[in-house]
């Protein structure tokens, strides 16, 4: 390697005397270039190719209006950016603050020292990011009323069925609201189950009303379970995200309100499970809100 270098150095020294003449020749020929191509000239073999990508800023204030550009051009030395909002730049990798929402056509012209250029354009669509808010899932047949499904059908409990568990009964008295409520006989062999699509890591509150007969002892429990199952046997209540054990037996005709707060954690689906033990119980008007 060193030997090669010495050899080159010697060559350069020897040819140094010829250098001035060559330079002169180049200058005189360059004006002819514009009119007639010199014999032996050839087109730019490595023409520029313009390309870029854009990244939107992240932050609390107006960072979303700032775009930084990553230059992916090749074989180019000079760059000219038109950001589509009246601003421009000749930096290699500039950033631009846009006035606000809208679609802007960004154009990059990449040029080499032979004045060959390449142009690339891309539309960037700027939308102000919305503050992330939790999705409020619809609860079907939330009041256990007949024909209350979105298509106007249903027996008030179709959305609460789960294979392997007895379907809930419907009662017309007492109810909290409307003309029907869910009824769980004292045998405790019924379950209401409905899966909901939710936003992960969000706080929700499930609200409902329940009442119990005054004799005997037992409870009506509402569980929030992670994910969705298709068989009652797959349920493991030890995994429940939240639960409320209702034991208010003071008046069989007066409904008591329960607010059950929970956080969805690493789940984009949770399920409501309603079961009872020992005492005939009623439940009505289930609703959900995001905190």
């Amino acid at each position: 390697m060193k030997h090669l270098f010495d050899f080159k150095l010697g060559l350069i020294t020897k040819t140094l005397s010829m250098f001035a003449a060559v330079l002169l020749l180049t200058i005189t020929t360059s004006c002819e270039d514009e009119v007639y191509p010199v014999a032996g000239s050839f087109p730019d073999k490595t023409p520029p190719s313009a390309a870029f990508s854009a990244t939107q800023g992240v932050g609390f204030d107006n960072e979303w209006k700032t775009f930084s550009f990553s230059n992916q051009s090749s074989s180019a030395t000079d760059f000219s950016w038109d950001f589509g909002d009246g601003n421009s730049s000749t930096e290699f990798e500039p950033s631009n603050v846009y006035p606000g929402e809208g679609t802007f056509t960004v154009t990059l012209t990449a040029t080499d020292k032979l004045s060959v250029s390449s142009t690339y354009s891309e539309d960037i669509v700027i939308v102000e990011p919305e503050a992330p808010s939790a999705v409020i899932p619809p609860i079907l047949e939330a009041g256990f009323e007949d024909n209350s499904l979105p298509d106007g059908t249903g027996d008030g409990r179709d959305s609460w069925r789960l294979s392997g568990a007895g379907v809930i009964q419907i009662t017309s008295s007492p109810v909290y609201n409307g003309s029907q409520a869910a009824k769980f006989p004292s045998a405790g062999d019924r379950a209401g189950y409905q899966a909901l699509e939710v936003t992960p890591n969000s706080d929700y509150t499930l609200s409902y009303y329940y009442t119990m007969k005054t004799s005997g002892s037992g409870n009506i429990t509402v569980w929030i379970l992670p994910g969705e199952v298709t068989e009652f046997s797959q349920i493991d209540t030890s995994e429940a995200i939240a639960s409320f054990v209702g034991t208010d037996q003071s008046d069989a005709n007066t409904y008591v309100k329960v607010d059950l707060p929970f956080n969805t954690g690493a789940n984009d689906k949770v399920a409501i499970l309603i079961t009872n033990e020992g005492v005939e119980s009623r439940l009505d008007d289930v609703s959900i809100s995001a905190d």
Partner: peptide, 15 residues
């Protein structure tokens, strides 16, 4: 980082 989910901040109890 997973709970932050590309956002600016999180006050999730798990996080």
């Amino acid at each position: 980082e997973a709970i932050l989910a590309g956002g600016n901040s999180t006050s999730s109890a798990a996080a």
